[in-house]
Amino acid sequence: MPLPFLTADRGFDTDEDVALPFDDHDQWRRPYRPGPWRVAAAAVALLLASFMLLATMIIAFAGAPSAAIVCFVLAALVVVCALRMLRVGTWVSRHGLRRVAFFRTTTLPWAQTTDVRTVQQPVRWLGLPRTVQGQALVAVRKGGEQLALLTDHNADFLARVEAFDRAADTVEAWSAEYGASS
């Protein structure tokens, strides 16, 4: 079964020096791999869901179908949450930028962006309320409002400075390619 989110930065594994390594620029792609913190959290959630499904089966064989249905629904909810956790991040295409959060997705067409740049600013550590000094890739809208796309302290780039720099450069390359032409 192909897992396209794991092959997102396949262009960096080759010797080619291509900023936009994908053939189909109309398809939404994440220009980096999900980080180990995000993958580990999703794996733990899926492990919990497997135990919940085992409990569902035991409850169903014990003769309590209503409790088994409740347990199954909760396990399905944990699986959906784990899959959504893996989708979180910044996605790019010819049409614009898409920032996918856990509960919300924001799409910003290239025509509405004036600049995409890396800035030094306080950023959230693993999405928690605690802030630390770090780098953030921000997209500046035409009204001057900034949208933080990536930070070097989120679940994808914590302790992976080179991966953050590579992802920021790739998103900036997409912006240079499609932002100026829109």
Rank of each mutant, 00 (worst) to 15 (best):
M1I: 11
L3W: 03
P4M: 02
P4I: 03
F5D: 04
A8K: 03
D9T: 00
D9G: 02
F12S: 02
D13H: 03
D13Q: 15
D15I: 07
F22Y: 08
D26N: 12
R29W: 01
R33C: 06
P34T: 04
P36C: 04
A40C: 05
A41R: 10
A42E: 10
V44L: 08
M52P: 06
M57E: 13
A60F: 13
A62Q: 13
S66R: 11
I69P: 04
F72M: 12
L74Y: 00
V78M: 08
V79Q: 03
A82N: 07
L83I: 03
L86A: 08
R87I: 09
R87W: 13
G89H: 05
H95L: 15
H95S: 15
G96I: 00
G96M: 02
R104V: 15
T105I: 14
Q112R: 07
T113A: 14
Q121R: 09
P122D: 08
G127R: 07
P129K: 14
V132C: 09
G134D: 14
L137T: 01
V138Q: 12
V138C: 13
K142R: 14
L147Y: 00
L147W: 00
L149A: 00
L150I: 04
T151E: 10
N154I: 12
L158A: 13
R160L: 13
A163R: 11
F164W: 10
A167C: 14
V171E: 01
A176R: 11
G179R: 07
A180D: 14
S181I: 09
